[in-house]
Design a protein around this nucleic acid. Structure first.
Lengths: 338, 338
DNA sequence: CCCGCGGATGCAAACGATTGCAACCGATCG
DNA sequence: CGATCGGTTGCAATCGTTTGCATCCGCGGG
């Protein structure tokens, strides 16, 4: 139909023979109204198919019960699951999600933030690609902001503990005898890529491991394309920015008859579902992504009820060892120079 | 900061020494206002950092510039990309997306729809899992509704042309000599699974192919778990509900030393990115998912401007042949009974 | 000189809900 | 018998913005 006139409070009031205030109170469960009237009003409202105009409600009430969220890429399972957790938690708290995708583009993300803030009472920036200046701008907005996977002041912070993550990964590899590791990086705009690099370097130094780094990206093809460079390197193990990259790389290695893990070990961050279905299955760091979203909401919700920002929540990932990592090979790969 | 008082129209008016109407008109580009005043008001508004209260605006204006969307599963790349296309198109049209995830649960989807409709001026149901009654309920709501991958009356419809899809898939397989094909199905609540089955049966009959069907699901593990049943079947080729299931199945086949495609061919619907990185790469039907979202918006936008619903948009997928399909084996698999 | 005109501006009424406060009622109490 | 009180109900203001209409002003024409 879609052309039906909306039933308003006043229509219900007229039909029920009372005033709008009575109807409003009856429907909202005020104890100022006699039970019979409440029942009657409820009945009438039901018959008429009354649904409150939420826009008018929120307008009158003052605060929008909406959380604006930005993610770099909706198709990345990492973000999907964060959204899942966040959406569920916010929903339980009576809030809705307004989701915007920046397409990994900082300028677009800023535009998005500007727009979201007009409609939302709070913002969650997922793996924000904003530079320092952009981020400050966002934090200056008149709504509370939580950053997921990015540490900043004067905002809520929920992040993966990459320090622990990198240590776990490297210790696993050194345990297998690897002394030279190559990191295939992510997007330059990614804070978490920076953290991975920083913590890997630091831990590599501590563990006396040689760490090489190359540029990569966030998607499968970035990993696939990195294949030749990886093969030329002298590393016996590779750590990729995330599983998509890792799976892409595994795929290239397979196409080029590099045996994993016999010739080269591959490990990664995130443990998205397909990691288990890659051949060989990918060793990866499992993190509770949905939990990231939930924690973001709980920080927000505390803040919204007037408290100060809680201290940052750091989630320690857990290594899921699969067949893509194994003992370091003894001798240099012969085909390395072909 | 987040405690700053909002600057309202009246504040700008006071500062600029005019009335609120003048400010409103100046800011909205009415031609009733003299250019100098417009300039002055704009300046003052800028200095004060005025941002219109969108809630009040939309409230006054009457229609919410928001599209509510439901998807069964945010983490499924198929839906992510549909959302991507829809979000971009809607955004270009001045609308925002309110996204809800039903978790593949019809009851939850209905609840979601009820809630979204309170905030949105239009709804898009992605692969709705609602039963007939639920769907009717949704369509009776006072907003236009577009269904993606589900045909209904009195609503916009955008869908994959599964009739064509199934024909393309089966013709590919028969071209390779397969005469017995097994379909590993999706969720029972999925309309598109029904369509896949219906059209596969019909086409199989036409092509004189024997079609077996088993239950499956939507995720990787459903495919993995279907492995034993697949192996026991006498089919020489398998079609899976989607790529996630397909990849899961490939993974099981690999673990159990079934050679693909030498012993068994596997093909699927959707061609999500990882299909290319599976080992062997998965033959799959590419569809323009983002385009589904765009078309949904264009139907909606036509409808919102008063026109009748356009005729359904059907998208014909394109087969991407990869290494998971090959000539049918000549002899029955010996290990079939072990 | 006065009227009328047209451009620029302000007043005030919406939009649909919530809510403080006043009004009302019957019953109880002094 | 009138004042009071507790329990219900309605009136009217309010949220921030847009917009129809009235107003105002200066100027040109009759």
């Amino acid at each position: 139909m879609s052309v039906a006139e909306r039933v308003r409070l006043i229509d219900v009031a007229r039909e029920a023979g009372t005033s709008v205030s009575t109807v409003s109170r009856a429907l909202n469960g005020s104890d100022l109204i006699s039970p019979e009237v409440v029942a009657h009003v409820r009945t009438v409202a039901g018959e008429l198919g009354y649904r409150a105009d939420k826009r008018a409600q929120e307008f009158k009430l003052g605060r929008p019960l909406t959380v604006g969220v930005t993610v770099p890429d909706l198709t990345n399972p990492f973000f999907s699951e964060v959204l899942k957790g966040l959406a569920a938690a916010a929903r339980a708290g009576g809030y809705r999600l307004l989701i915007g995708e920046s397409g990994e583009d900082p300028a677009e993300e800023l535009r998005l933030v500007e727009e979201l803030v007009d409609h939302a009472g709070a913002l969650v920036l997922c793996s924000s690609r904003l530079n320092r200046a952009g981020l400050e701008k966002a934090l200056a907005l008149p709504v509370p902001v939580v950053c997921i996977n990015r540490t900043v002041k004067n905002a809520g912070v929920v992040a993966i503990d990459y320090r622990a993550a990198s240590r776990i990964l490297l210790e696993h590899l050194t345990g297998l005898g690897h002394r030279r590791v190559l990191y295939v990086g992510g997007p330059a705009t990614s804070w978490s890529d920076g953290e991975r690099r920083r913590t890997l370097r630091r831990t590599a130094r501590a563990l006396d491991v040689t760490l090489d780094e190359i540029e990569g990206g966030w998607a499968g093809h970035h990993g696939y394309d990195a294949g030749p460079t990886v093969l030329r390197s002298r590393a016996t193990a590779v750590i990729t920015f995330n599983d998509l990259v890792g799976v892409g790389l595994l795929s290239w290695l397979h196409d080029n008859d590099v045996e994993v893990p016999a010739e080269l070990s591959v490990a990664s961050y995130d443990d998205i579902p397909i990691a288990a279905y890659a051949r060989p299955p990918l060793t990866s760091l499992r993190n509770e992504r949905a939990r990231l979203g939930e924690l973001a909401w709980s920080q927000l919700s505390a803040r919204l009820s007037g408290e100060d920002w809680p201290r940052p929540d750091l989630l320690t990932p857990e290594l899921v060892v699969r067949a893509s990592t194994g003992p370091a090979r003894r001798r240099a790969r012969i085909r390395a120079t072909t």
